[in-house]
Each structure stands twice: as structure tokens, then as C-alpha cells.
């Protein structure tokens, strides 16, 4: 498993939040669990307000499907349309494949990189 970037914060449901930019994506652990991603759809639009825990996207791989939850609350200021056209990018570069960007992202209960890696380790057994 690749190293979880230390500048990001992580949710128990395997999404990451970049507190500096408000961008949101899914972790390396999540993409590995899903395996080869073949479809993704962002289900919120620019201007929407989301709360932590809301569904913001769904992802389908050859063998699984998963919803992506907002790790933080805030207002959607950008959605990454390019990713919708090339969902396989998420498998290769999970930490640059952002789904949406939030303004004024506020969050509770997110883990730092070290805590998240320990959390992933725990689940691999």
C-alpha cells in the first residue's frame, strides 16, 4: 500500500480531505478494495451545500460498487468532470484524483495519516 500523504485527513469510510484546498477523494486502501474502477458519478453539483456523511458520488468497479461520502461539510465550489471520463485514474493516483472541492470545509472526527494507516492495517487482518 502506498503511503498516505501526511497533508490529508481521512474518514473512517476511506475518503480523504485536503484541509488546505477543500478537495475530496478516496484513499489508496479504498481503491484497492474496489479493484478496477470502471465508472464513477458525482451526484452533487456546484452550489450545493453538503454535510459530512452525505453521499457525493458513487463508484463502480468490475466487482463492487460503493458510495463516496463527504468527509466534511461545506459548499461545493468545483466538481472534477475530467475524472468522470477517466475513472481508472482513481486506481493509479488516488491522492490526486479529487472528486469535488468544498469551500469552508468543516469536519470532525477525521484521522491523520498515521492513525489512518493503523486503521487500515487493522482491517487487513
Amino acid at each position: 500500500m502506498s503511503l498516505s500523504p501526511s497533508n490529508l485527513q481521512y474518514a473512517k469510510t476511506d475518503e480523504w480531505l485536503d484541509p488546505a484546498t477543500g478537495k475530496i477523494g478516496i484513499s489508496d486502501y479504498a481503491q484497492e478494495q474496489l479493484s478496477d474502477i470502471v465508472f464513477m458519478e458525482i451526484t452533487v453539483s456546484v452550489g450545493d451545500t453538503v454535510s459530512a456523511g452525505d453521499v457525493i458520488a458513487s463508484v463502480e468497479s468490475v466487482k463492487a460498487a460503493s458510495e463516496v461520502l463527504a468527509p466534511a461539510s461545506g459548499k461545493v465550489v468545483a466538481v472534477n468532470e475530467d475524472l468522470t471520463g477517466a475513472p481508472e485514474t482513481i486506481n493509479g493516483e488516488p491522492y490526486t484524483s479529487w472528486f469535488i472541492q468544498l469551500e469552508g470545509a468543516t469536519s470532525a472526527d477525521l484521522m491523520d495519516a498515521a492513525a489512518y494507516e493503523a486503521y487500515c492495517q487493522e482491517r487487513s487482518h
Binding site: E60, K63, A64, A65
Partner: peptide, 13 residues
Amino acid sequence: TLTAREQHIKREK
């Protein structure tokens, strides 16, 4: 193909 759309994976979704 695209079986992840279907009920045995997506269940109630």
C-alpha cells in the same frame, strides 16, 4: 459486464 450495476452487488441501490 458492468455487473456492479446489478442487484447482487448494489442491492437496495
